[in-house]
Amino acid sequence: MLDYVLRRLVYTLITVFAVASILFVLFRMLPGEPTLQVISPAMDPAVQERMKEAFGLNQPVGLQYLIYLKNLVTLEWGRSFVSAQEVTDILSYRFWNTILLMAAGMCLTLVLGIGMGIIMAWKRNSPVDVGGTIVGLVFQAAPPFITGLLLLMVLSYRLGLFPTGGMYPPGARPDGLLDLLLMPEFWHRIVLPTLTVGMYYISTPMLIMRDSMLEVLGSDFIELARAKGLKPRVVMFRHAARNALLGVVTIAGIMVGFAVGGQVVVESLFSWPGMGQLMVESAASHDYPVAQGTFLMLAILVISLNFLTDILYSYLDPRIKITAKGMN
């Protein structure tokens, strides 16, 4: 087990390193001055020279790359062109806002999706099953900016039930995470973005849970449980659902990885001050140090989630380690 975890950890680190390198190459290919990556063209020329010196931008490319990697590790990610704040400071604040919204969305998706999947498999081929499948597929086909806009237009503009965006009312800046979580306004504002995320991703766990439930229901131990005279409810939840969950776990990690990308749309739509919104703002205003840092942080988030899923899956299904070894 430990061997497997270590092996995956090494691969994970290699992936982070590779993504960082791709980012270096991309920003180096920038049309015009490559120094744009860290130095704002609006600065005083003398200052620009000194910055070039400090960031080693007058060095050959190979050395620049090494300096870039060193700066990444020592968390010197540069300063924003717009606000002159340290990129790492901005990110450390934005990071938790993204995590909060993602966690809320994923909890809703997984709990509802898995529950619906079990019911659909139970009432197979009934209107619940067919209807659920169609609704799930349509939700999946509706990109989050459409469902989000629709929710905004109906529940917020028309009915006035929810605020149109933000994480807390203007002027009521909370100090710290705990203070934020204790604000009723925060919970009021998180509803619409959570619903948007939840609706988009619900079909995945729902349909996979349904399919793997049907598969498990065909196996011998379910027959046995039924033959023992257990109640259908007990057979469904205690025996079948537990085994069918494995399929959902595998896909959940990948799904959460995708959700990091979807976060960009939802945060922009609901002015949620997370990393997704920061990504769009910084890219639109050509604030390269922030754009680069945010992208890297989002990538690290995706990569860590993939790693955690691998580990969780190998823990739940010990067979996977053997095949994984055979594969590598």
């Binding site: 590779a18 991309l26 990885g257 990091v260 749309v265 989002l298 990569i303």
Partner: peptide, 17 residues
């Protein structure tokens, strides 16, 4: 490595650049 790339952010960065 590609699975480590957040999809939409990658497009945004590429288009911005």
């Amino acid at each position: 490595i590609l699975y480590g790339m957040p999809f939409l952010p990658f497009i945004i960065v590429l288009i911005a650049l």
